[in-house]
Design a protein around this nucleic acid. Structure first.
Length: 853
RNA sequence: GGGCGGGUGGCGGAACGGUAUACGCGAUAGUCUCAAAAACUAUUGACCGCAAGGUCUUGAGAGUUCGAAUCUCUCCUCGCCCACCA
């Protein structure tokens, strides 16, 4: 792997860098052997000839290597590393990577030491399933897929630093994935607990949520899945909930992403209230964010998983309650969805007492109450909660109104639409009467706490992270189970715990991981007592390797740490992280959590891994549907490259629409981009003269520089390309164009079309690579227009346009006079009173007329 | 049910208080050709008009403004994510 011979590599690189001399390399491509810049003008634009040539040169020269500790300012550009699927690169990958490639190239030209790396996220279910389907071992199929991806990446001319390539399935890599797990274990942030999992009764295996279709069936066999409990490893991400929320202030994420994370963490302030059960030693605790409505509580509902149920159920109700519990556990997602909001439930025969008004509230069991939300029990306030209202209606429980909304209606509530309000005043609530609901909430919380009936709590929507899978193709969890010592961590020196090679790796049917079949591998001595012990057989989820991969790029060969501290000091945090919106609440949040943990134990230098995060829109098929084999609308990038070349594909993917929005694929538009490059090719080779550049041309040139510069910075690629096209159109209409203009045009387009521009750059007799050149800068003095077009409006409608020299644009009087002289304007001004004249410098002069006509 | 985005020509989209429809696609006509393709040139929001010119137009409706696609409110509609979250 890439980490082996770093010493050798350095030497090699030295030898491999020849002086950049195009004439020397020409003979390798006989097609160009005799050509010079002038005769090349007759040469048609042929990407299949020039693209492989430059890709080879760039690689030989190591043009895109990032250099540790370089004096230039560092800039770390990160894309989500792909899962190397069997179907090869997707146009969606290319969109994201070309965009960041353009970004990286521009940053390099601006003098930054850019790190733009790539690697492979190759563990996980898709790889395992694909291997099962093809009847090959994942360890043989994964390298093949990687090869294919790599080849495709290279044919696109992406400026990745290949010397830092990583692979999550490499034991040298996952040694550190396991090491991180051990640190979590050591710090008490992992635990094992029974968690509901999806069970396929036909395949006799647990399934990940991704494998269960919306209708609750197993995607591969179509059998209805069931929920059942299984012991799993969990990570305590909830301990970091507050910091994950707070520290969003430290980073620049697009608003959409930040909001989604905030909602996902879902911090809520509320109160846990304990209700005494009548004639019983038990109390039942309910969480609520609306204690102000508690005088309106008329019943209590507990979820079927609630531990107290059978203890508090009266004898004559026990049979019915047990049946209900069993039925609801067996109920699949499908059935729940099919039921919609229809409420079911059974009465336990017990009552709880509301201390506030001594009301007896019947205790019911219903599956609309979820075991893992709040306390698993709710206090029913049917007057002001829709679900409670529906439940009360189904079982004829009393409904009391305790809040009146703005309309002041005090009649009893009979419709769901009358329930719930954001503003209102308390009624029927003793000492709360007349208070605004927000004041009332505060007052009653104080009161309940004072009386000792309950306690304020903060709850989160975020749950602890289920971190184990019963599948083969993942990192083994480095834990040993000993009868005497319990779960013991594998000593650090014994890492990695390598994944044993198993010929048969299909799910076992017992719910245990296939690793349980590796009999020899299983048996170990307990690291603590030396007694007989057994390895943990669960593997990690596919998120495990991607939690920290961006650190490994900094030091891919390190065998004594996940990465050298000094290198992390230099490179972290990631300056911009670009990826799919679908990862906002999973990968993005998880990896922030892991990074924060590593920060706490002194491994990484800062509290947040990504300074900036942006996401892109997905690419849909031409039919407007998601690209998928079953729709037959998948675009194969290789075909596009063969037909039009990588540069056309890259330009098109940037031009197709706003980067952050969903876009449709269009073959015709790809051709349009190809035509653009073809025309520009001819222009650059044929039209150059020695004539000096006109003021008008300079102005257009500098405005284009400004536009492209800013658009790339803001990820507005579609308008960047549009302005390059506009600039081409402008140049093509000029009689003569100068070498300087062509030069700048090439510099501006080179982040998007790196081969095209490199070839023409050399045709213009520049010696070194265009990608080592400096990014062009614009001068304010040239930006200013010489002639302003000022719209003359009558009551806001444009009637004429004046052409005014920039020297006169401050002279309102003169502009007014000229405007009045215009025939088109006079027609309207005639016989009408001018009420007002508004002049906006250089833009508009508006005559406001009396409308009394 | 909740959250977040959108709705502009035949299509993808620009503009985001100041000349709506940049750029590209498509379409129409022409040049070249025996012919076609390619390439090039011109036209291309709708309606009225021979023309000059005029009227209308950014999902619908109201409002703010000298001026609104852009800001505010109401409604319609499409997409994505989450969802019996107490």
């Amino acid at each position: 792997m890439a980490n082996l011979k770093s010493k050798n590599k350095k030497e090699k690189v030295k030898i491999m860098i020849p002086k950049y001399n195009p004439s020397e390399i020409e003979p390798k491509w006989p097609h160009f052997a005799a050509s010079n810049a002038a005769s090349r003008g007759k040469q048609k634009y042929n990407p299949s000839l020039i693209e492989p040539k430059w890709q080879k040169r760039w690689e030989e020269e190591g043009l895109y290597r990032a250099i540790d500790f370089d004096k230039r300012q560092k800039f770390y550009v990160l894309i989500e590393f792909p899962y190397p699927s069997g179907s090869g690169l997707h146009v969606g990958h290319i969109r994201s990577w070309s965009a960041m490639d353009a970004y990286s190239r521009k940053k390099r030209m601006e003098g930054k030491n850019v790190l733009y790396p790539i690697g492979w996220d190759a563990f996980g279910l898709p790889a395992e399933n694909y291997a099962l389907k093809m009847r090959v071992h994942p360890s043989t199929i994964v390298p093949k897929n990687i090869e294919r991806f790599k080849k495709q990446c290279k044919s696109l001319g992406l400026s990745f630093d290949w010397s830092r390539e990583i692979n999550t399935t490499d034991p040298k890599y996952y040694k550190w994935t396991q090491w991180i797990f051990l640190k979590f274990f050591e710090k008490g942030l992992t635990y094992q607990a029974d968690v509901p999992v999806n069970w396929c009764p036909s395949c006799k295996t647990n399934l990940a949520d991704e494998e269960v279709l919306l209708d609750g069936t197993h995607e591969r066999c179509g059998t209805k899945t069931q929920k059942r409990m299984q012991k799993q490893w969990l990570l305590k991400i909830t301990k970091y909930a507050d910091r994950l929320l707070e520290d969003l202030k430290l980073v620049d994420y697009s608003q959409k992403i930040a909001i989604q994370q905030i909602n996902w963490i879902g911090k809520k302030e509320g109160i846990n209230i304990k209700y005494q059960i009548e004639n019983s030693k038990y109390q039942i605790e309910c969480f609520t964010t609306r204690p102000d409505t508690n005088f309106g509580a008329t019943f209590i509902v507990v979820g079927p998983e609630h531990p107290l149920i059978l203890k508090i159920t009266k004898e004559k109700h026990k049979k019915v309650v047990k049946e209900y519990i069993n039925a609801s556990v067996r109920k699949s997602e499908v059935e729940r969805i099919a039921e919609g909001r229809k409420k079911t439930g059974v009465f336990t025969g017990s009552y709880a007492i509301n201390d506030l008004n001594k009301r007896k509230m019947p205790i019911w069991v219903s599956d609309f109450v979820l075991g893992n939300v709040g306390t698993g029990a709710v206090v029913g306030v049917p007057g002001h909660d829709i679900r409670d209202f529906e439940f009360a209606r189904s079982f004829k429980l009393p409904i009391i109104r305790v809040v009146v909304g703005k309309d002041g209606d005090r009649s009893p509530i009979t419709k769901a639409s009358q329930v719930q309000e954001e503003e209102g005043t308390m009624i029927n609530s003793d000492f709360l009467n007349g208070l605004d609901i927000h004041e009332a909430t505060k007052k009653i919380m104080d009161y309940i706490e004072e009386k000792g009936w309950g306690k304020r709590v903060t709850v989160y929507h975020l749950r602890d992270w289920v971190f184990s899978r019963q599948h083969y193709w993942g990192e083994p969890i480095p834990i040993v189970h000993c009868k005497k010592c319990g779960a013991v961590s594998v000593p650090e020196k014994d890492l990695p715990v390598e994944l044993p090679f198993l010929k048969e790796y299909e799910p076992t049917g017992t719910g245990e991981s296939p690793l349980a079949l590796a009999k020899d591998w299983l048996k170990v001595k307990c690291p603590e007592c030396g007694g007989k012990a057994r390895r943990e057989t669960d593997t990690m989820p596919n998120w495990a390797g991607s939690n920290w991969y961006f650190l490994r790029y900094l030091d891919p060969g390190n065998d004594s740490a996940l990465a050298d501290k000094k290198k992390m000091d230099y490179w972290m945090p990631v300056d911009i992280y670009q990826g799919g919106f679908e990862h906002t609440t999973l990968h993005l949040l998880y990896s922030r959590f892991v990074y924060k943990f590593l920060f706490d134990i002194g491994v990484v230098p800062n509290p947040e891994p990504y300074a900036k995060r942006r996401s892109h829109g997905i690419v849909l098929g031409r039919d407007g549907r998601k690209m998928s084999k079953s729709f037959g609308n998948i675009i194969n990038p290789d075909e596009i490259i063969n037909k039009f070349g990588a540069d056309t594909l890259r330009i098109y993917e940037m031009f197709m629409g706003p980067f952050d929005q969903t876009v449709l694929w269009s073959e015709e538009s790809v051709e349009g981009c190809f035509r653009f490059l073809k025309r520009a090719w001819v222009l650059c080779l044929t039209k150059i003269s020695d004539k000096s550049v006109s003021v008008k041309s300079l102005s257009k040139l500098h405005r284009t520089i400004k536009k492209v510069t800013e658009d790339i910075d803001n990820l507005k690629y579609n308008t960047a390309i549009a302005s390059l096209m506009e600039y081409y159109n402008f140049l093509s209409k000029e009689q003569n164009i100068s070498k300087d203009e062509v030069k700048t045009f090439l510099l501006l387009i080179c982040p998007f079309a790196p081969h095209f521009s490199e070839e023409l750059w050399h045709a213009l007799n520049f010696q070194d690579s265009i990608h080592k050149a400096s990014w062009p800068s614009f001068k304010e003095e040239y930006l200013a227009e010489k002639i302003f077009a000022i719209a003359v409006q009558i009551n806001g409608k444009t009637r004429d346009v004046l052409r005014v020299d920039s020297a006169h644009i401050n002279d309102q009087q003169k502009i007014e006079e000229t405007a009045r002289k215009s025939q088109r304007v006079q027609k309207y001004l005639n016989k009408r009173k001018i009420k007002d004249i508004v002049y906006i410098k250089g833009k508009v002069i508006n005559f406001v007329l009396d409308n009394g006509l």
